[in-house]
Write a protein that binds this DNA or RNA. Structure first.
Length: 450
DNA sequence: TTTTGAGTTGTTCGA
DNA sequence: GTCGAACAACTCAAA
């Protein structure tokens, strides 16, 4: 009797899952998760908690159809062949991944196991969106136009295999703390439903960190508690807001395709000239940035939101990233690592792609002298200062516009609301005008080949 | 092969 | 206060 494994990785759902669809067309299927200690270690607190919650939710879904999630521990290269032999399976189905780490591991697994690969984490698999010349576009807009034209694979439907409950499953670790957001596909559906209430305001609201204008689905896409294919079907492109959101899914595909073709982008700038930038070695500045104590309220608000919740609003991710790279002239790789550690949706292709974008070192049509002014950005996107006051409570007594730039205020005026710069809140660690010129000079020098 | 047009998310300066 | 232009020069996609 044919028995297969569905090896769940970052696709923790049963709907819209090509690997599960294929595996569950066997007579019998074993749903498997390989808990890799190295990955769990590096996941950071928020992703770890979310992963364990999502695995619990997947287990619950499987119970409803008479199964359980079979959990084994160890590097996949060892655990997968061992489990396959123990359970007597004839085929293994899994959704492929794009990073160098994943492909190396997966190649090693495939050398000793009969694995069939599928694509369930992207709208379109790497290699399927090509320019007229057959290359992957290094400019987003042409990629996007092609991406819209590629036919979507049909939605994967689950099969009717008997779900085998095998002995020898390890218990799932208990999360240190309870999940803040409801995990799993049911949580994802609730988040999507809430987003669809406001999706038509998305083009305007998505840049307002004080508002709930974004989808909040990033971690669901990261762990696959919602499938991008199903998401696309549900959201569609019928209105400007919906189309704007779907466009973001194209960005997601694009960054994944780029990393698939260029795995070295994790370490290297897309354009080699930018690896000649003379980054500053500034541990104190890096620490101030991580701690949310730069003296720039919007930057500090974002960094504190990240550390407290594992999530940061997208607009503020751009502002904080720009500040680290351009204002502090600190290597984007330091920031990428910190974000990856803390973000609940931390995902190598997306994180690397967006950091290279912010640093101006990546695939990017924007000129390098486009340097965000953190004060202007705050005034534009958090005009009332609500977001700042939420995450920087020591400035709660300040109204706009002072809350955006307390260092410009009269010290007496600040003292009246309990703010003493250099004491209750930091003096700006760098002056933006000076920092801007310094960054432009450093980038220019790198491009000029010095 | 050569040419042409275009390129996520900005800021600053001067009229 | 508002508005338009400058900010550089390049790479890429497409014709």
């Amino acid at each position: 009797m044919a028995r297969s494994i569905c090896w769940f990785r970052r696709d923790l759902r049963l709907d819209d899952n090509p690997a599960w669809s294929a595996a569950s067309r066997s007579a019998e299927v074993v749903p498997l998760y390989v808990l890799e200690p190295q990955l769990l270690e590096s996941a950071g607190p928020f992703r770890r908690r979310r992963l364990l919650g999502d695995l619990g939710a997947l287990d619950d879904e499987l119970r409803e159809i008479g199964g359980r999630l079979h959990v084994v521990v160890g590097p996949a290269q060892e655990a997968l062949p061992r489990t396959a032999a123990q359970l007597g399976v004839t085929s293994i189905h899994a959704n492929a991944d794009v990073t160098a780490f994943a492909t190396r591991r997966d190649d090693a697994c495939a050398a000793s196991c009969p694995i069939e690969w599928h694509w369930g984490t992207l709208l379109h698999p790497p290699g399927s969106v090509r320019t007229a010349r057959g290359t992957l576009s290094l400019v987003f807009t042409p990629f996007y136009r092609r991406w819209l034209d590629v036919d979507l694979a049909p939605l994967a439907e689950p099969g009717s295999a008997r779900v085998v409950v095998a002995t020898g499953s390890e218990p799932l670790p208990t999360p240190d703390t309870d999940a803040v957001e409801p995990p799993g596909p049911s949580g994802a559906r609730d988040r999507l439903e809430a987003f669809l209430e406001v999706v038509d305001a998305y083009p305007d609201l998505r840049d307002r960190p004080a508002d709930d204008g974004t989808s909040k689905l990033s971690a669901d896409l990261r762990f696959g508690t919602i499938g991008p294919r199903a998401l696309f079907d549900i959201v569609g492109t019928a209105t400007a807001g919906r189309a704007a959101f779907v466009r973001q899914l194209a960005w997601r595909d694009w960054y994944a395709h780029l990393l698939w073709e260029r795995p070295d982008l994790v370490h290297r700038a897309l354009r080699p000239a930018y690896d000649r930038i003379d980054w500053r070695d500034d541990p104190a500045g890096l620490q101030a940035w991580k701690d949310g104590r730069t003296g720039y309220p919007i930057v500090d608000a974002g960094m504190r939101q990240l550390r407290a919740t594992g999530w940061m609003h997208n607009r503020v991710r751009m502002i904080t990233a720009s500040f680290l790279v351009k204002d502090l002239l600190i290597d984007w790789r330091h920031g990428e690592r910190w974000f990856r550690h803390l973000l609940v949706d931390g995902d190598v292709p997306q994180n690397v792609g967006n950091w290279q974008w912010a640093a101006g070192t990546g695939p990017d049509a924007a000129p390098y002298f486009r340097v965000f002014n953190p004060t202007t950005q705050a005034a534009t996107h958090d005009p009332r200062g609500d977001y700042i006051r939420r995450w920087v409570p020591e400035l709660a007594g300040l109204a706009a516009p002072l809350v955006h730039d307390p260092s410009s205020a009269d010290p007496l005026e600040l003292a009246a609301v309990g703010v003493v710069l250099g004491d209750t809140y930091p003096v700006p660690i760098v002056e933006h005008g000076f920092a801007r010129e310094r960054a432009l000079a450093a980038y220019k020098a790198a491009l000029d080949g010095q």
